[in-house]
Every structure is written in C-alpha cells, then in structure tokens.
Amino acid sequence: MAEQQPAITLEKVCKSFGPNRVLHEVSLTLPAGKIMVMLGPSGTGKSVLLRCLVGLMKPDSGRIFIEGQDITGLDERRSAGREQMFALRRKFGMLFQDGALFDDMCVGDNVAFPLRQHAKLSEREIAARVAEDLERVGLKNAQRKMPAELSGGMRKRVAFARAIALRPKIVLCDEPSSGLDPVMSATLDELILDLHRTLGMTFVVISHDTAEARKIADYVGLLYKGELQAFGLKDEVLRSNQRAINQFFERSTEGPIQVL
C-alpha cells in the first residue's frame, strides 16, 4: 500500500518584511489526520506561517508542500497558477482570528457560502449541511442572525462552522481561543477533537494557550523570533526539557523567551 503523503511539509521556509525577519528556516512535517498546535508569543510569525501555508503570502525562500504538492512555485499572477492555487485552497478551511464573517450575510448564508461556491449540492442539501454544522457548534437557532448581533465566541463558532462546511482535509485555526472565556475555549477544543475523530481532518492550530496544546495536540511546535525552537510529538516535546518549552509551559519569565 502506498504510504500516505504528509499533510504539510515545510523546508527551510524564510519570510521577512523589510529588515524584519519573521520566519527563519522553518522546517517541519505534519502527517495527515493529526492535530498540530503551534505555540509562541505574540508577533513571532505564527500567523504569517499560517498565511504562507494557504498561499496568502509567499515565502522568500524555502518550500512548502501540501499533500506532496509544492505550492511555492505557483505564480498567482498567471491564470494557470491561480487556478492551481484555488484548487489547492479547496483542501483548506480556515478559522480567522476574528472570524472574518461576511457582514452583509446572515449566519446561515455565511456557512452556506463555500457550499454555494464549490459544492454541487441542491439548496435543500446545503440547508441540511448548514443546519448540521451549526448544530455541531451549538448555534442551531442562530441561522437568521446577522454577524453584528453575535458575541465574540458565537462569531468564532460560526466561522468554525463555515471553515468545515466543505469538509476540507486541512483546517487552519488562527488563535481559536483568544478572547474567549475558558468554557468557550474548552467547547472549541472539544469541537476540534470531535471533528478530528469523526472526519479525520488535519488541524493546524495557532495558539498561546498551553492548556489547549496539552489537551488537543498530537504535535506541538514553538515559534520564537521566527525560528522553530521545538517541534515534534507532544509527549516528546514536553519531555525534551528544552528551556524555551519549559518556560512557555510553566508560564515563567525566566528563560530564553523575552518580552518583546
């Protein structure tokens, strides 16, 4: 049987904005169907990494493979490259930090949007999928509400329902627990675990939350000043006794990670 391609492979990925080095030779391999939590202080390049994965930003050097396909060579200025990039992005769902819900659409239409764009489903089937996903995130009665009427936690849950509506292979979550109360954070963590179990999706979760990493991660990475300080299976990383990892998980001010 052919070996399954890793979901994501990064090879010495570098990205700078002017003199500001955001990612420096970041390399990692994430097998398919696993949950990776990328930890790190604010402003250390976690969100940039996520944007590079989905082609919203192009690395200055290095290569990114999604299910074995090198995406760094795709030139979006050419229509063929853009088509390939769009085909690749259909493998992804993304939960943005603030939800990025469409203001002029109700909750139901927001969740239905990717289905209407890409799925060959009837309106009835779309309605059923929307209802199913909104129930999954505990918002089955919010279909007709507008995003402006929702709390921060509700917006994130709607965005989560939208991100998984097309049943993507890889779901990227940009700080899903930031700004949420502990109970709501735990609810989102349970959702990720549930989807991982039931649909076998690969998750890349950007977070500051070590409790979240302990709870849901198969793989853990720590990014600091654009460099990957640690990456591997969660238990191995936690046992590795690396100073940066210890400092982060013990919430200590003593160690290599300095307040920026």
Binding site: L56, R89, P114
Partner: peptide, 18 residues
Amino acid sequence: ANMQISEQVEALEVMAVD
C-alpha cells in the same frame, strides 16, 4: 476597506473565490 481590515477579502481568497 472594511472587508479588507476585517479579513473578509482574505477569507474569500482562502475559500478559493476570486
């Protein structure tokens, strides 16, 4: 501009919608 700063335009890109 509002769609840009609230990442709605990026969300479209990620959803493979031009």
